Computed example of a mutant assay.
Amino acid sequence: MAAQLTDDELSAALAGEPSGFSAVYSTMSPAVLGYFRARGVDDPEALTQDVFVDVLPKLTGIKGGHAGLRTFLFSIAHARLVDYRRRSARTPQLTEYDPLQDRRFSNSAEDDVLGSLGGISSTLSMLNDEQREVLILRIVADLSVEQVAGIMNKTPGAVKQLQRRGLIALRELVKDKDHTPS
């Protein structure tokens, strides 16, 4: 059973004596702390301290004896709880970033470019193999005519001719695609 505040301790507290406040705190703070814990406050000790900081300067004006003190104490505790709830409702919940729990997804720049190349890839597939290979090595790989000739085992003149014919064919394919209704 919890300790009870004696009449002498209550009188001392109501008279403003420090020993009386100390007695009020030691006998009543466990009940206030329990109230806050039961109400789910995340830091009940801090809120209990706030209640007694509010009670201290007002102790001398309390009427009604033990019941009056208890009523006054828990009315302040309730007001602190309401303030706490309002403050919690306005305060955003902060959580640490966990990349494993993050379900958001955004394409990388590379994914976007490769996705936009889908139409180009299908257009390139309409060229013959040599034209397509020359254009990819020249444009995408940024190789010189001589380097492409060495890779494809062709003369530089043949590579230039394949490139010219491939670009003409691409121009025609793109032009046809632009004039075709979707």
Rank of each mutant, 00 (worst) to 15 (best):
I151T: 14
G64A: 12
E110T: 11
D102T: 04
F52G: 07
F36W: 09
H66M: 08
P44Q: 06
E146R: 07
R85V: 03
E130F: 03
I136W: 10
H66R: 15
I151A: 06
I76M: 07
R39T: 00
R85K: 11
G119P: 04
S125L: 06
I139H: 08
T71C: 10
V145N: 02
F36M: 08
P44K: 08
R138I: 14
A31N: 12
A38D: 08
P57F: 00
R90Y: 03
A141D: 13
G34P: 07
R90W: 01
L100P: 00
G115F: 10
D42F: 08
L124M: 13
P99W: 01
L114K: 15
A38C: 04
S108I: 05
K58M: 06
A149M: 03
A77S: 09
I62Y: 07
L114H: 12
V148M: 06
R37C: 10
G61R: 11
D129L: 12
R103Q: 14
Q147M: 09
D129A: 15
T71I: 08
A31C: 04
D43N: 13
L56K: 08
D102M: 01
L135T: 01
D111M: 13
T60N: 15
V134E: 03
T123Q: 09
L59P: 05
H78C: 01
L135P: 00
G119K: 04
L56G: 02
S125R: 11
Q101L: 15
I120W: 15
L73W: 01
R87Q: 12
A31L: 14
N107K: 14
L47E: 15
R39K: 15
L81T: 00
F105S: 10
M152S: 04
A149S: 10
D83E: 13
G68I: 13
S88W: 00
S144W: 01
I76C: 06
A79D: 12
D54L: 11
V82S: 11
Y97H: 05
R85L: 14
V51W: 09
L137K: 13
L137E: 11
L94G: 01
D83K: 02
S144D: 08
Q93V: 02
R80W: 03
K63Q: 07
N128Q: 10
Q93D: 01
V113Q: 06
L117V: 00
L137D: 12
V113A: 05
L100T: 15
Q101D: 03
V113T: 09
A109Q: 05
Y84S: 08
A89V: 05
A46C: 01
L94R: 14
H78N: 06
R104Q: 12
Y84C: 04
D43A: 11
S75V: 12
M126F: 05
D50G: 14
T91K: 06
P30T: 00
